[in-house]
């Protein structure tokens, strides 16, 4: 089964897009659109946690649209990682956690990476591509 992830975004705690990448051929965005979508999501996420009728809500985790799903993971430190995927792709929650682990390993532990700044780390790109492209079941089986 081919990869079902369309795009991947990482936004820092202040809402800046620090990483964007598209996988596959669907839903490619140019730089402006990716920035627009990221800041839009940051605000919507913040508003949603305020509007939620459920106490202690930390924001939207999954948005289902007609043509894609958007899965979002927010760490306790405020960094958000979100992906758009083909509708109904399973196991994304787990996959986002794995992506978070890759982020801590290959981005934060790189001494030359400046915290909160755009991510330009080859090892991260490489490992991310491997995880996302492995197969549709990547998220279910773990490492």
């Amino acid at each position: 089964m081919a990869a079902t992830v369309y795009n991947l975004f990482v936004i820092n705690k202040s809402g800046g897009l620090i990483f964007y990448k598209d996988y596959g051929t669907h839903g490619r965005l140019d730089t402006n659109d990716s920035l627009r979508l990221a800041s839009l999501w940051h605000s919507m996420h913040a508003i949603s946690s305020q509007l939620s009728p459920v106490g202690g809500c930390t924001g939207i985790e999954l948005l289902e649209a007609d043509t894609f799903d958007l899965h979002c993971f927010q760490s306790l430190t405020g960094t958000k990682i979100f992906v758009t995927t083909e509708s109904g792709t399973p196991g994304m929650e787990n996959m986002l956690r794995l992506i978070y682990e890759l982020y801590t390993d290959y981005v934060l532990k790189n001494p030359f990476y400046e915290v909160e700044m755009p991510i330009r780390c080859e090892l991260w790109d490489l490992n991310l591509a491997q995880l996302v492209r492995k197969d549709g079941k990547a998220g279910l089986t773990g490492r």
Binding site: S75, L76, T77, T79, R97, Y100, E101, Y103, T104, D105, L108, K109, V115
Partner: peptide
């Protein structure tokens, strides 16, 4: 400031 994310990612600690 870097290690905290590693800790959170790998320890499954919640708030």
């Amino acid at each position: 400031v870097r290690l905290i994310d590693d800790f959170l990612a790998k320890s499954n600690i919640t708030r």
